[in-house]
């Protein structure tokens, strides 16, 4: 397969989140925040390169919006190039990883950062469609590819 983006720019990974005192305290409640959600998805692998979505700046912490009270999460991701054919796959991987890692009370929206992809609306629509998401995961080949992207993030 031909690579679409041969020499992408690589950015620095953020450090591991330090464990705070209040997190070690038995009695305090740590709300789910944007950093925690970002940590769940930042290590997902790009389908094309052996790099994480964070390193390619496809995902950035500032583009992760979390409302713990209202159980709502919105994530904007930025494809490396405007005509990237992998955008849907990346979106799907993010979605699947979050579906598996977050409590079911959350409503999750995964979208492309406005103005960064040529067929932004179409992809957003696909990613918002629950039926299509679950249908795509019935496809064992596709599921395998998604699992591979996610699998490395788990190590």
């Amino acid at each position: 397969m031909e690579l679409e983006n041969i020499n992408p720019n690589i950015f620095k990974k953020s450090d591991e989140r330090p464990v705070s005192e209040s997190e070690k305290n038995e009695n305090t409640v740590d709300p789910i925040d944007s950093r925690e959600v970002f940590d769940l998805i930042r290590n997902i692998n790009d389908p094309e390169h052996p790099l994480t979505l964070e390193e390619l700046h496809v995902l950035e912490e500032s583009r992760v919006e979390v409302d713990n009270e209202k159980s709502f999460i919105r994530i904007l991701f930025t494809p490396t190039i405007p005509h990237c054919s992998m955008a849907t796959l990346i979106g799907l991987s993010i979605r699947v990883k979050l579906l598996r890692s977050l409590p079911p009370r959350f409503k999750i929206s995964v979208q492309i950062t406005p103005g960064t992809h040529s067929s932004e609306n179409a992809i957003n629509k696909q990613l918002a469609d629950k039926e299509r998401i679950s249908a795509s995961l019935e496809n064992s080949t596709l599921l395998e590819v998604v699992n591979q992207c996610i699998a490395r993030s788990n190590r």
């Binding site: 997190e23 740590d30 409590p103």
Partner: peptide, 12 residues
């Protein structure tokens, strides 16, 4: 699933 919504982040 319940543990995913644990009050403590480390548990989650």
């Amino acid at each position: 699933i319940p543990a995913l919504d644990d009050p403590k982040r480390l548990v989650r």
